[in-house]
Amino acid sequence: MSIKNIQWMDWEKEVLKVSEPVIVEFWHQNCPTCVKIEPLVKELPIKFDTMAKILRMNVLESKENRRLAIQKGVMGTPTFKIYCRGIEVGEIIGLEAVTELDQKLFKIINKCA
């Protein structure tokens, strides 16, 4: 398992029409907290294995990516949004992601059951 970098046009296929829980990190390379937590994010596919799909969207990569993030209510980076069968069930924002990220995500993923 690895992290898939998605673009705005992948949203429906990768997030909405998926049966398993999905974690999406909205990030960009000029966001110091995003860079800081990158090692933690890279461990997520191993920690969540088949429990959830881990995706990332770089909001600086295109105007469309940025607008999709704004449309989804992202107001700071990094923002992790968690979806169950296409419905948003929780989010982790900014410095909240710095400590115990996996445990916080597990807690939200449990709502998917």
């Binding site: 909001v59 923002t79 924002i93």
Partner: peptide, 13 residues
């Protein structure tokens, strides 16, 4: 992180 922010370079976009 929900509208209040401290770094324009990070979140202005």
């Amino acid at each position: 992180g929900r509208g209040v922010f401290v770094c324009a370079t990070c979140d202005a976009i």
